[in-house]
Amino acid sequence: MRKIVLAIDSFKGSLTSAEAEAAALEGIRRVYPQAEIVCIPIADGGEGMLEALSALRAQEVRLRVQGPLDEKVKARYLISSDGQTAYIEMASASGLPLVPENQRNPLLTTTRGTGELMRDALNRGCNHMVIGLGGSATNDGGMGMLSALGIRFLDRQGQELEGRGCDMEETDRIDTSFAHPALKTVRCTAACDVRNPFYGPEGAAYIFSPQKGASPDEVQQLDKGLRHLAELYRQTTGHDIATLPGAGAAGGLGGALAAFLNAALRPGISLLLEANGFRDKIKGADLIITGEGRADRQTTMGKVPAGVLNESRQTGIPVVLIAGQVADKEILRSAGFSQVYDTTPPDMPISTAMQKDVAQTNISRTIEDLLK
């Protein structure tokens, strides 16, 4: 083989995308030492998005912003080389790992830090923002983010609310008179890998807030708040985001971006592949290898390997899928993957397989065996 492309997602809990690809590269070199190997670090728009964009040689901006609770956190985003596009990973400022397990409560968390990153990018002259919506600790309907951009949420007494999950029901009026002026012209694209609506049985609160610490009663309270907020958003902007697919992403942040910034909600993997120039990089390739920590029928529903497969479909280049664990092999093959490989030996405990050095060895060995 003359050219092999690696576009492997992180093996969550074990390896980053770059680490998984480095292990695969080692396996390729043992069989085809002269082959051209193209590594494309990849992610789905959530955590790891900025690392996946490392090939862009963008400027990194580091800030201290408000975290999901009251404390300040160190966050970062990227600005493209032409200074026009900001790449923001909301998990950097408002992500679940930033909140200790015993303090997780989406009634109290806020997306304000994400808004502070956006405000800084606007102040630097960026006119396009790409925002990854995965991995949030929040369910504030985007109130915190909008507050950081100058939009005021007022209760019945005219007092300004902070923009936390518990503030959604308390909001009586939205004041946009102090909104950042660039909001009228900025173009916004949200990397969004869920199709959930803003509220309801399949909405942000019911589907995602329990994993962020919400009790059953709190889930109902949050859903009522989102329902109330959706109507206020419609009255304020004219955009009805209640049933918009993806509006429930990141606790309703997707809906807020769509309502106030007219954001396009796009699958994260397609955005990342486009930004990384995937179609140009795979030209002339003999093989594409993609993968993730666990592959099953859910893989075909918008995950990274499915995105790689879809982008490659018209080229005729075979796409091989590797994963630490594999289920539903026949479904995966019928989806279009030329081969599907489990990197973990059948007699190896999962706890062992997830150790970094073991996971890397397993990937290298698997790649070497499949190429032979």
Results as ranks from 00 to 15, higher is better:
91 A>T: 00
200 G>S: 15
232 L>D: 15
246 G>A: 10
66 Q>W: 05
248 G>L: 00
301 M>V: 12
93 A>V: 04
7 A>K: 06
9 D>W: 01
292 E>L: 04
191 A>G: 13
46 G>D: 07
71 E>T: 11
361 T>C: 15
325 Q>V: 07
206 Y>S: 11
208 F>W: 07
24 A>Q: 06
180 H>S: 13
68 P>L: 06
152 R>Q: 14
41 P>C: 06
147 S>C: 14
92 S>E: 14
161 L>A: 08
73 V>E: 11
198 F>E: 14
339 Q>Y: 10
34 Q>T: 08
103 Q>P: 07
70 D>H: 13
363 I>K: 06
305 P>Q: 10
181 P>T: 10
227 R>F: 05
164 R>M: 03
32 Y>E: 10
36 E>L: 04
367 I>H: 00
188 C>D: 14
61 V>R: 07
233 Y>F: 15
149 L>C: 08
91 A>M: 02
100 P>W: 04
257 L>A: 11
304 V>I: 09
210 P>E: 13
25 L>Q: 12
318 P>G: 12
242 A>R: 05
104 R>Y: 03
170 E>Q: 13
69 L>T: 14
247 A>N: 09
186 V>E: 09
262 N>Q: 13
129 M>S: 07
168 M>D: 08
90 M>Q: 02
124 R>L: 10
37 I>P: 04
204 A>F: 00
366 T>Q: 09
268 G>W: 00
122 L>E: 11
5 V>H: 01
303 K>P: 00
360 Q>R: 11
94 S>Y: 05
223 D>L: 02
275 A>H: 06
205 A>G: 10
223 D>M: 08
187 R>L: 09
179 A>N: 12
124 R>Y: 09
213 G>M: 03
197 P>W: 07
346 P>A: 12
372 K>D: 15
3 K>I: 01
7 A>M: 08
88 I>Q: 02
